[in-house]
């Protein structure tokens, strides 16, 4: 059995096509400035962040999960209790398109953004 053949290029082209398709769907959507965050636990909204500060997230049993920080139009997660720390390594998120996901704790931190066109006009002006 051969390592690679010509038909592999078609498979790779299809996979890269799907990658580019999903990237354009998720990244081109109304990019704005982050003005807060919503914290979801197992799909239910448990916290809405509007003011700058550090917020502690607990689960239903009162167990500490993580700190969510919102400063200078960006959101990040610190001191996560999960073993893999992926949510922490995501770092500062400054676009409302990218959520911070913590699989072991089942938490999604979704930055909310102003979807006004005035922001874009200001930059071009």
């Amino acid at each position: 059995m051969k390592f690679a053949k010509k038909s592999d290029f078609f498979i790779l082209i299809i996979i890269f096509g799907i990658i580019i398709l999903f990237m354009s769907i998720t990244s081109l959507r109304s990019d704005g400035v982050v003005d807060g965050a919503q914290v979801f636990l197992k799909g239910e909204k448990i916290l809405e962040i509007n003011k700058e500060g550090t917020y502690s997230i607990y689960n239903e049993d009162g167990e500490f999960l993580m700190n969510v920080e919102y400063y200078n139009d960006a959101v990040r997660v610190t001191e996560a209790s999960c073993p893999d720390k992926v949510c922490q390594n995501t770092g500062w998120v400054s676009t409302p398109n990218q959520p911070i996901v913590c699989i072991p704790n089942k938490v999604v931190v979704k930055p909310t953004g102003k979807q006004n066109k005035a922001g874009v006009d200001l930059y071009t002006w």
């Binding site: 690679a4 998720t26 959520p99 913590c102 699989i103 089942k106 999604v108």
Partner: peptide, 27 residues
Amino acid sequence: IVKSKGIIWYYPYMLFFGVITAFINSA
């Protein structure tokens, strides 16, 4: 698990990472 469609944002990156791992595996 997280019951949120926001995870779609990471889907293309995961696919790209999978392409690299699949290449190493097949090698």
